[in-house]
Structure formats: C-alpha cells, structure tokens
C-alpha cells in the first residue's frame, strides 16, 4: 500500500467517524426534545412524529453526505 492510498483510507475513516459523531449528537438532542414535548403534550404526538422524521432527515443530511463521500473514497478511489 503506497502513501496516497493510506492517506485516502485515513481520510475515509475520519469522514465516517466524525460524521457518525455529529449525527449521533444531533439526533440524540432532537429525539430527547421530542420525547420531552410528547410527555408534556401527548395530544401533539402525531404532529411531533412527522416533524421529527423530517428534521431527523435534515439533521442527518450532512453526516450522511460525509458517510457517502467517505465510502466513495474508501471503495471508489482508494
């Protein structure tokens, strides 16, 4: 393995790991707030659920892009 592809593997690993970290923190904060809201006002649960999925997708977007790019670097380029 030459130096360039070693660097690419490190880059892909960093992208995957840091992306997972960001998504974990973001989705964790989001879902704790959703649970809090649902406990306070149970009649809002259907609205909260649909909004939760939408915002989870949006929070997930940038980490997921990083995961996609990271996997592309690992398997497509390196």
């Amino acid at each position: 393995m030459n130096e360039v592809s070693a660097m690419l593997y490190i880059a892909g690993g960093l992208m995957l790991g840091l992306g997972a970290l960001g998504a974990a923190v973001g989705v964790g904060v989001l879902s704790s707030k959703v649970l809090e809201g649902a406990a306070r006002q149970p009649e809002l649960v259907p609205m909260l659920t649909s909004k939760f999925f939408m915002f989870m997708g949006i929070v997930d977007a940038v980490p997921m892009i990083a995961v996609g790019m990271g996997l592309y670097v690992l398997f497509g380029v390196a």
């Binding site: 997708g57 997930d60 997921m64 892009i65 995961v67 996609g68 790019m69």
Partner: peptide
C-alpha cells in the same frame, strides 16, 4: 442528501 443516503 439523497445521493449520500442511497450510496451508503
């Protein structure tokens, strides 16, 4: 977003 999710 769509590409990243589906590709992963």
């Amino acid at each position: 977003r769509l590409f990243g999710n589906m590709y992963a």
